[in-house]
């Protein structure tokens, strides 16, 4: 089995480990740290202690600049983001926060290393290395445990944790995870494995469909925006698009054959859209992806399309049944699963 497939299988069936080189981790301090969040985020930023929220940072034309989580822990504000470099992200926030002066941005990558654990039993491994309290951490919750910043979130559809470990303890944590992970058949997941899982679960990938100049309306990301907030970068473009409407939408699909990105999607000899992302799904045994389809072809459940002569059907994500949905930290265990599988 190739590395990507090993990592994919671990994410889908046990637990996978990744060093997240693409995750930007910032901390905002100062009395106006949360005012800064409020100024730059298109969502309503009401965060309880230990709560995370998924949102975006938008360019003035309404297209995503960064795919982010914002988080509150006590009076500390955290931002985890994908897309731009740490430097570009810090500059962008500073540039768009001119009305707030009492804050500073700390680049956590200088003192912490981001690791990720994803999989239906990620919670169990986390509990072994960080203590049982971690089991009580809700989805989109954050806590500090043993000097490690733990964020429960992910983009695979399975249990997921981002761990920011102090850089000087990184090797010790890697060793700890590696040792404890053996009992869980933990494997390393590369970017391709994680990207495939994200694709199957229709998670937004700023480095993939985020590169097509689409707004949250075409990307089906309206839930990341406030419906009432008036002032944030890109607000004018969002307002205008909301009023004028949109005619194309990102739609999940499956096809039995590999086709190239940017290939036209055809229905009755008419081009109705294009492929923006595609990848082989080992769990399904076919290819799943995202196509930008125009109205009224943008619905799920239609098996009337062709792409390069191959049949293509639209579907409702997730494209796979995530094992994590049927696993509870309060009644299941990887060891129990092993017994069930061998009996």
């Amino acid at each position: 089995m190739k590395g990507t497939e090993i990592g994919y299988n671990a994410i889908r069936n046990s637990v996978a480990f990744t060093e997240e080189s693409d995750l930007c981790c910032l901390q905002l301090t100062g009395s106006q740290a949360f005012d800064v969040f409020d100024a730059v985020c298109p969502c309503d930023v009401f965060l309880q202690d230990g709560q995370m929220k998924y949102t975006l940072l938008l360019n003035e034309d309404g297209t995503p600049f960064a795919d982010i989580y914002v988080c509150r822990k006590g009076e500390e504000a955290y931002l985890l983001g994908y897309g731009p470099s740490v430097e570009a992200l810090m500059d962008w926030i500073t540039e768009h926060s001119t009305e707030n002066t009492d804050f500073s941005i700390i680049d956590l990558s200088k003192t912490y290393d981001p690791l990720a654990l994803d999989g239906p039993y990620a919670w169990e491994l986390c509990a072994e290395v960080l203590g049982p309290d971690i089991l009580g951490l809700p989805y989109l919750g954050m806590k500090i445990s043993d000097e490690v910043l733990v964020f429960r979130a992910g983009k695979t559809g399975e249990y997921g944790y981002h761990l920011l470990v102090p850089t000087h303890q990184k090797n010790a944590w890697l060793e700890k995870l590696s040792t404890a992970g053996r009992a869980f058949e933990m494997a390393h997941a590369n970017e391709a494995a994680r990207a495939q899982c994200a694709l199957e679960n229709f998670f937004f990938d700023i480095n993939r469909e985020g590169q097509y100049g689409l707004t949250p309306f075409e990307l089906q990301l309206q839930w990341r925006l406030s419906s009432q907030k008036a002032a944030y970068p890109g607000a004018e473009a969002i307002r205008t698009r909301r009023q004028s409407g949109w005619t194309r939408r990102l739609t999940c699909f499956s096809t039995p054959d590999p086709v190239k990105v940017d290939t036209a999607v055809v229905c009755d000899n008419e081009v109705v859209g294009h492929i923006l992302a595609i990848g082989y799904s080992p769990m399904r045994g076919d290819y799943v992806g995202k196509a930008l389809l125009r109205r009224p072809y943008w619905h799920a459940g239609l098996d009337v399309f062709q792409v390069d002569g191959c049949p293509l059907k639209t579907l409702s994500p997730p494209a796979v049944n995530n094992r994590s949905w049927n696993i509870s930290p309060y009644s299941d265990s990887f060891r129990t699963r092993e017994k069930e599988n061998t009996s």
């Binding site: 989805y139 229709f202 089906q220 309206q222 839930w223 419906s227 619905h299 799920a300 409702s316």
Partner: peptide, 19 residues
């Protein structure tokens, strides 16, 4: 829900995130 149907996308998650 304090939202109009136009502000909902078909693949919006119901639990955890989304709604």
């Amino acid at each position: 829900l304090d939202i109009s149907s136009e502000q909902l996308d078909p693949d919006t998650p119901l639990f955890g995130v989304g709604l």
